[in-house]
């Protein structure tokens, strides 16, 4: 495992703080997910219910059912999959699973080329910016993970090409990342999740910090 120093924004302190980007999702991350993320998600959903918000509402967290232990068990030992995690003050703040091998680019300008596909990306629930959530503790977790995905794509020789299907709640984030929205397909995720893809140009702009 390799750890890289990154920076998050500590909202309470109003300052940047050091954090670690790990090129793996280890047991520590899964324990944090199980015993810290899950209870926080449950508490948030209880708050939603108390405010009359149910699963059919757009405010309902769309990743609430994600089982990170199961997701990592699915790909354990496979060279074509890898994970990244962000840790700050010894607590996991975000996780991402990547597929390095089995997806191909769809944009006309790069159709058929290899890319890094983001299987899943999630930040800890106390960092969510949602209408009924408390103010996020750390910001920039998602951008740090997206930076890692693009950097991995460059390192693999994929020129920064990254693809993913976005939950509806995350669409504005990927638009801010400069990804192209190719829309939904009826044969994928029940036609509910639009597909986004970055080009080498968009990736370069993201890595240079030209997009926020």
């Amino acid at each position: 495992m390799t750890a890289y120093q990154v920076h998050l924004f500590d909202a309470a302190a109003g300052a940047m703080v050091e954090a670690d980007l790990h090129d793996e999702i280890a047991e520590k991350q899964l324990i944090d997910w199980q015993f810290q993320w899950r209870p926080a998600v449950q508490a948030y959903m209880k708050r939603l219910v108390d405010n009359g918000i149910g699963p059919a509402d757009t405010a309902w967290p769309q990743s609430w059912h994600w089982d990170w232990r199961g997701k990592m068990n699915e790909v354990r030992g496979l060279l074509g999959h890898t994970g990244y995690s962000v840790v700050c003050r010894d607590v996991t703040q975000g996780m991402m699973r990547l597929d390095l091998a089995s997806r191909r680019a769809r944009l006309d300008s790069q159709a058929g080329q290899d890319l890094v596909y983001v299987d899943y990306l999630e930040v800890a629930p106390w960092n969510w910016r949602e209408p009924y959530a408390d103010a996020p503790i750390y910001r920039l977790v998602g951008p740090v993970l997206m930076h890692a995905a693009i950097t991995r794509s460059v390192d693999e020789g994929f020129k920064g090409r990254v693809g993913l299907h976005s939950l509806p709640q995350a669409i504005p984030f990927y638009e801010r990342c400069g990804f192209t929205n190719l829309g939904t397909r009826p044969d994928e995720y029940e036609g509910k999740l639009p597909y986004f893809e970055s080009t080498p140009g968009a990736a370069e702009a993201y890595l240079k910090g030209e997009l926020k």
Binding site: L78, L79, G80, A101, G112, D114
Partner: peptide, 23 residues
């Protein structure tokens, strides 16, 4: 040439896919 990858890049992708199919 077709994939715009280096030789090691192609071989690495082939190994990943071969392992995935085998598993």
């Amino acid at each position: 040439a077709k994939k715009d990858l280096s030789k090691i890049g192609v071989i690495r992708q082939a190994l990943r896919l071969y392992q995935m199919v085998d598993v």
